[in-house]
């Protein structure tokens, strides 16, 4: 059975670096960047993006709605 794959887009300029998405991600995709955004926050980014399953946990707990989640389910071979 084909594995569901996911990906996220983080609106880095609006991210406040609260770290809640990092904790909520079951596959440890997200980390806070060492770089800061225009507001001075270490913003979240998908460091290990290939592990993303598109479960939406990160976006669900994100208070600032900066994460959009996409999911792709490959057709069965």
């Amino acid at each position: 059975m084909a594995k569901v794959k996911g990906a996220i887009v983080v609106d880095t300029e609006r991210c406040k670096g609260c770290n809640l998405c990092v904790v909520a991600c079951p596959t440890n995709v997200i980390e806070l960047n060492e770089e800061v955004n225009i507001k001075g926050f270490n913003y979240a980014y998908p460091k290990f993006h290939d592990a993303c399953t598109g479960c939406t946990n990160c976006a669900t707990v994100c208070p600032d709605m900066v994460i959009t989640v996409y999911r792709f389910k490959p057709a069965k071979a």
């Binding site: 990906a7 959009t68 989640v69 996409y70 999911r71 792709f72």
Partner: peptide, 17 residues
């Protein structure tokens, strides 16, 4: 299935959130 890059998933996949 071929392995898609995150960029391809964003382009071809469903926005779920």
């Amino acid at each position: 299935a071929e392995i898609l890059t995150p960029e391809e998933i964003i382009k071809q996949g469903e926005p779920v959130f």
